[in-house]
Design a protein around this nucleic acid. Structure first.
Length: 415
RNA sequence: GCGGUCGUAGCUCAAUUGGUUAGAGCGCCGGUUUGUGGUACCGGAGGUUGCGGGUUCAAUCCCCGUCGAUCGCCCCA
């Protein structure tokens, strides 16, 4: 008989147990708490979408679409894709599910996303994000509110001190086109001096040359035309309203005129919360305004703004959460005690007291497990207790114990 | 997709210039204690040194390939 080979996990996926899972959960819990405080409703959208949802919204030429998507034909012959981001799917739902009637719609979600990339620490093929969006609002207050939400989330996670909000404007459509044309003209003049990567970007994504790390590109990028020189009055006023709102809310920010977006649908506000504690994966939360996206999906002109944050990266930054512990461990000895224990176990749990009982083991084993579980109390049941209709309640830390009637347990433990 | 580093028990790491039964701590299991945990002591299980080739009398160590992790690039949150 040949040995059966255990299948390996797929590259870039994670299995989480113990602290890793607790960290992940702590991030999600904080997000869910804070999003309620801001009146952002929870939504769920599919993990799988027609490929066109992403191809249209992200742009056919972007790396995400051209080489990083998990796309395949389903059994019916339709090209489908595991979502590489949230925004496009949410906008599709906004159009196809009649969510337009709720505009401006403040919504939040979280879950797994998929990109076929080379894995690194904090970068996985199945990764997870938090996501918050305001759809159907062109007011700068929406941008400000989303940034406040992000800021408060980072504060509640205890990582705001190591993180900086960097902010930029990409202007409105006209601004962006004029600036983009000026950038292309500028970079084209220096074609011979640019890195190979940037020559490639010149065709596909010229804005990206601005934040190139290649030393050959830096002087050229630093000498490039500034967005501010192309900003329309309206776009300038919009940005001023956003920064003014942040100042009023007491949120620190720094302007980064080199901050751009890879995806074509962004307008006006672009922002990233960055840290230097995660190496190359320094962006912890990022987003911006994407007024052009819903039209790209065939919908009416609809302003929208949103952000996403990598749960894995946030989970690496927070302090380790306290481990989960139970209140009571039940320790029965013998058949009769076991039956009595099952009743007590059910009663305590129904009363909201976290209670556990080992499936097997002698008393010593069970006490060891009770201790390891972090239980504050143990309920010990042996032949004596069964005979008297009582149980022994022991406080683990004090090592004190007393006999008590089972129907008094809930009251005693809660008091 | 490109370049660098790394891959030894469940985990963190050892193993003299390539040399014979690959070690330790933690963890796990059992015992000292058949109605009492945390500490202590004793004992045990657990490795085809990631996988596949090659060089050599001999490979954890050298070479090639492959898979994986990691760092940077690319991309992106």
């Amino acid at each position: 008989m040949s040995k059966i080979e255990t299948p390996r996990p797929i590259r870039g996926t994670q299995d989480m147990l113990g602290e890793a899972a607790l960290r992940f959960g702590a991030v999600v819990d904080a997000f869910d708490r804070v999003r309620r405080l801001y009146g952002f409703g929870r939504v769920e959208v599919p993990v799988i979408e027609p490929t066109a949802v992403f191809a249209r919204s992200l742009g056919e030429t972007t790396d995400v679409v051209s080489k990083e998507m998990y796309s395949f034909e389903d059994r019916g012959g339709e090209s489908v894709t595991l979502r590489p981001e949230f925004t496009a799917g949410i906008c599709r739902a906004y159009l196809t599910e009649g969510w337009q009637q709720h505009a401006p719609l403040k919504i939040a979600t979280h879950g797994p996303l998929f990109r076929y990339e080379r894995p690194q620490k904090g970068r996985y093929r199945q990764f997870h994000q938090l996501d918050a969006e305001v759809i159907g609002s062109g007011e700068p207050q929406a941008d400000v509110e989303l940034l406040c939400l992000a800021d408060q989330l980072l504060r509640e996670l205890g990582i705001a001190d190591g993180v900086t909000l960097t902010l930029n404007t990409l202007g409105d459509g006209a601004t962006r086109e004029a600036w983009r044309a000026a950038l292309i003209a500028h970079f084209a003049k220096h074609r011979g001096e640019l890195s190979e990567d940037s020559l490639d970007r010149l065709d596909k994504n010229p804005l990206r040359i601005l934040d190139s790390k290649d030393p050959r590109d830096r002087p050229i990028a630093d000498a490039a035309p500034e967005i501010d020189d192309y900003l329309s009055a309206e776009a300038g006023a919009f940005f001023a309203a956003v920064t003014g709102g942040l100042d009023a809310a007491g949120i620190a920010w720094t302007r980064n005129a080199r901050l751009v977006r890879g995806l074509d649908y962004y307008r006006h506000t672009a922002f990233e919360f960055v840290t230097d504690r995660l190496g190359a994966q320094g962006t912890v939360l990022g987003g911006g305004r994407y007024d052009g996206l819903i039209e790209a999906l065939g919908g009416p002109p609809t302003p929208a703004v949103g952000w996403a944050a990598g749960i894995e990266r946030l989970a690496m930054l927070i302090d380790a959460p306290d481990r989960e512990r139970i209140d009571v461990a039940v320790v029965p000895m013998g058949e009769a005690a076991q039956q009595m224990a099952l009743g007590i176990l059910a009663d305590l749990r129904r009363a909201g007291i976290a209670t556990d009982m080992s499936y097997r083991g002698n008393m010593k084993k069970r006490m060891q497990k009770a201790d390891a579980s972090g239980a504050i109390w143990t309920v010990i049941i042996g032949d004596d207790e069964v005979a008297n209709g009582e149980v022994t309640l022991k406080h683990m830390a004090d090592q004190t114990q007393c006999r008590i009637r089972p129907d008094r347990l809930v009251e005693t433990l809660k008091g």
